[in-house]
């Protein structure tokens, strides 16, 4: 896997080693007590020092919503933008300043409703953005309306008789846009969240991470079925590249194919059958990742971890390549440019 983190140039003085506190801004964090966002913020602040990139080279860009207050709490550069449009600002910044590490923090309403278009285009262009989508299946900041990931029948302030809109599957959408890195994690599962975020950070290209996040005020317990410690092993499938898909507290259940569909098979712990599905995050086809994105509770465990991690040229590398080639082919001569093609000018004396 190609590394996206710029290394310190040879001979440059060693940079001071940074710690988590160096990435904590002086602004008071104003999420509701118990909000899942706190755990995500802490995990990101803990991760950044390990990436070896100094503060001024990180930029956090968000849209509108509770999650989008994130940049204010990071002691890095940041942009709190307008609703749904964070990927557009991030694309212009990253593609014109490729050496920066650009993060996008968004939510299910911001990223999948008003900003759905920008999300798919950022992903298909493979802009090297680290996109964290906090999915709590509700509009929090506007105080409790149905979101694009709310389930059909969900009763909210705007849907007192139940939502009639079929929900979007964020990972299916990202895969349909041919995102090169697609992953999922749970806000409170700090170890695996940290692992997924580090993988996302080190991926070169668009990284899309759906974080199942709990809104304690307007949709408390939306992910309880998968996030509760007591049932976590039974209800989730933690994906590992090259390993058979095994889950359960006793590691005694697995996934295999029956025709084109997956099925659960139980076996004696430690003796998995040979025909279990083996995870391949590098598969060029999105088929397996789609299959995993489309399963979930109550019939199946919820897959967690890295669904897809493939390489494709990034937008900024392609642009830089064209600029470099053009510079080599023709000098940047403004006088010649203004005069235009030969034979098009005349002289008045």
């Amino acid at each position: 896997m190609a590394e996206t983190i710029p290394s310190t140039p040879a001979g440059a003085p060693a940079k001071p080693v940074l710690a988590r506190k160096d990435f904590v801004s002086d602004q008071m964090v104003r999420w509701c007590p118990g909000c899942g966002d706190y755990a995500i913020l802490a995990t990101v602040q803990k991760l950044l020092p390990s990436l070896g990139l100094s503060r001024e080279n990180h930029v956090f860009i968000s849209g509108i919503g509770c999650s989008s207050r994130f940049p204010y709490y990071m002691n890095t550069f940041g942009m709190h933008t307008i609703h749904g449009r964070a990927p557009t600002f991030a694309t212009g910044l990253k593609a014109s300043r490729p050496e920066l590490m650009v993060w996008v923090v968004t939510g299910d309403g911001d990223g999948l409703s008003i900003g759905g278009n920008h999300l798919i285009h950022a992903l298909r262009r493979n802009v090297d953005l680290k996109i964290l989508l906090f999915n709590n299946k509700i509009y929090g900041l506007t105080k409790g309306q149905t979101s694009p990931t709310s389930e059909v029948g969900k009763k909210t302030k705007s849907t007192p008789f139940g939502s009639v809109d079929y929900p979007i599957n964020p990972l299916s959408l990202a895969l349909a846009a041919e995102a090169t890195f697609v992953a999922r994690a749970i806000d409170t599962d700090l170890a695996s969240l940290g692992h997924v975020l580090e993988r996302a950070a080190r991926h070169k290209g668009s990284s899309f991470v759906e974080i199942l996040q709990n809104c304690i005020v307007f949709n408390d317990g939306a992910w309880a079925d998968v996030s509760e410690k007591s049932t976590r092993e039974e209800h989730n499938l933690f994906l590992e590249h090259g390993k058979p898909m095994i889950f359960g507290k006793d590691k005694n259940k697995g996934l295999r194919l029956k025709g084109l569909d997956p099925e659960i098979v139980e076996f004696d712990s430690g003796k998995p059958p040979a025909d279990l599905l083996v995870h391949d995050e590098k598969a060029p086809s999105t088929a397996l990742a789609h299959l995993l994105a489309n399963i979930g509770r109550p019939d199946f465990p919820v897959p967690q971890g890295v669904f897809r991690a493939v390489e494709r040229p990034t937008l900024e590398d392609l642009i830089e390549g064209q600029v470099a080639a053009a510079r080599q082919a023709r000098p940047a001569d403004l006088t010649a440019l203004l005069r235009g093609a030969e034979g098009e000018t005349w002289v008045v004396s």
């Binding site: 860009i61 942009m79 933008t81 449009r85 990927p87 557009t88 600002f89 991030a90 694309t91 212009g92 910044l93 990253k94 593609a95 014109s96 300043r97 278009n117 920008h118 285009h121």
Partner: peptide, 10 residues
């Protein structure tokens, strides 16, 4: 919107 967004980002 993306056109102006990209320009503001740049």
């Amino acid at each position: 919107i993306a056109a102006i967004g990209s320009a503001i980002g740049a």
